[in-house]
Design a protein around this nucleic acid. Sequence first.
DNA 1: TTGACAAATAAGAATAACTCTTATATAGTA
DNA 2: TACTATATAAGAGTTATTCTTATTTGTCAA
Lengths: 147, 147
Amino acid sequence: MNKRKQTALNAIKQILHNAGLRITPQRVVIYSAVLKCANHPCAEKIYKAISLENPNISFDTVNRTLISFAERGIFNIVEGYHTAKCYDHNTVEHNHYRCVKCGEIFDCWFKPYNKLATPDDIPENFAVKRKKVIIEGVCGKCKKIYS
Amino acid sequence: MNKRKQTALNAIKQILHNAGLRITPQRVVIYSAVLKCANHPCAEKIYKAISLENPNISFDTVNRTLISFAERGIFNIVEGYHTAKCYDHNTVEHNHYRCVKCGEIFDCWFKPYNKLATPDDIPENFAVKRKKVIIEGVCGKCKKIYS
DNA sequence: TTGACAAATAAGAATAACTCTTATATAGTA
DNA sequence: TACTATATAAGAGTTATTCTTATTTGTCAA
């Protein structure tokens, strides 16, 4: 293992440790796979991505691991649309574009969306934690198909 | 049937007709049930609400009907969170509060959210249709339970 | 007003995405 | 190193659809 990989491995271990999670080979593999994945993968996608090199990691472990990562804030779950849960390894505040045809998610880094006003009709005793913006539309790929 | 009910029935028939859908007794029942329901019901909830008086309407019909209503803009599907699809009969532009503990949805009628700026990093060829705000937090009920 | 026929429905099977159960294994610490 | 709470694998179970097939029914055109 070269130096860069060693450093990355230590970083992962640190993150798991800080989250109060035991460091298992499965978790290291799953964490790395999500980081490596360009977009917002679901459990199935990660499972497929790792299973060739790690045929002994079960789907259940992938799913459970991703959920526990999300619960501890290591990843976020993308605001969903009744499809499989998708994970976002970038926990810096940002929003999402979403294609209503294919469900593809794109990041939106438009700053003003991070400082939206707080609404004036908050339900009784509702404690606001965060505000998210979803920009719905049709992506370039789907526009071609449907027009 | 009294006059008010007659008028309501005609209104439903008009809506279905305008949407290019055939007027069936099942659709009238399902449409009315969603209107009568206070919050944002899922197919299961509507099925349960109507099945006592209409034991011969199948769950599949309820589900299929709600989806076809949503496809034609009669209802909206609430931006979901990996639970059953929830429907919103109010198609006037508004946003939603969402309890991250129990998933309950509340309407947000804060006007400024209806005129958000268009972001400056729209992906190549992405056609923006609408922008939604989701205000995440913990509802009063759940705050009591978890504290 | 009555056929014709595309659309809609009921019932049950099939599927997708988890979620649980149980037995086994293993990190982390005492 | 031994112990024990955690974590894992494998497979069964659950939830929320979604599909298939046979049957029925709105709607329109004659």
